[in-house]
Amino acid sequence: GFLAKLYGWRFVLKVTPIICVLVALLYYLSVTDISFKKSNNKLSLIFSGTVILVMIVLGTTSMCNRGFTTFFPVHLDRLGYDPNFYGSLLSVFLGVGIFGQYIGGVLSDKISYRKIVSSSLALTALFLVPLLRTENAYLIYFFGALTGLFMSIVWPAIFAYIAEVTPEDMHSRGLGIFFSVAAMMGGSSSILVGYTAKIFTLEHALLILPITALIGAVLMLGVRR
């Protein structure tokens, strides 16, 4: 956001691939592969009614997250805010994850995944509504931080559940399936919000975000640890 304000979006788009290459190179030089063995377990071991339900919950969380990061800057632009403001807001939204994901990890060791994910998604939906309605900069930061905090609590609990329900030698495959479902549902969020905005208004379309979070919260109540 800061670079876009100073030099324009074209400069940001040119710099981004360079950053990606540098990060990839740094990862290649600094990370050592661990040994692994080929899995003989069948893929069907990963699937069950409960696991599929958690996949859908992860998908609704991804829909909410992807829809927010895609369309909320358009909403802010209509309110007259510049890219620098959205960049700082996104830093707050993601930055509180430092605390949220740690809290989610600690709670996952003490409380059932079902309670953590369900309550966190419900609170995410609760704080998204005033975030989408307010035009005050301070309130946008405030509700943006709360929304990001509770959404970030969701991730450790879901990932811990994935690790628990998949055989040890199939963790990577299990994560791949979960992330594929999340990517598919997250990608559909942009289409759904965009099409709804075309028919009605962007403000109405953005209400899909708390609805998807609330659906995830309700579905998670049916998951057993």
Rank of each mutant, 00 (worst) to 15 (best):
G104M: 01
V92M: 10
Y86W: 09
I103C: 12
L219E: 03
I208P: 02
R66P: 08
S62D: 03
G148P: 10
S189Y: 03
G216F: 00
G216S: 01
A213M: 00
F143N: 06
G187F: 04
G186R: 00
M170K: 14
G80W: 08
I153V: 14
T166R: 10
I199K: 08
L3T: 04
G49K: 00
R224K: 14
G67F: 04
F150L: 05
I140C: 00
L146Q: 04
L3E: 01
L58Q: 12
A163T: 15
G174Q: 06
I18F: 14
L94T: 15
T32M: 14
L6P: 04
R224A: 03
I46W: 13
A197R: 06
S118I: 04
L107R: 05
R225E: 15
S35V: 13
V21S: 15
F127K: 07
S48E: 00
G186C: 01
G194C: 06
Y113A: 12
S180I: 02
G187R: 04
T134F: 02
S48M: 00
C64K: 05
A125T: 08
T134Q: 01
A125D: 14
A205N: 08
Y28T: 09
T61Q: 13
Q101S: 13
M170Q: 14
P167A: 13
Y161N: 11
S172L: 15
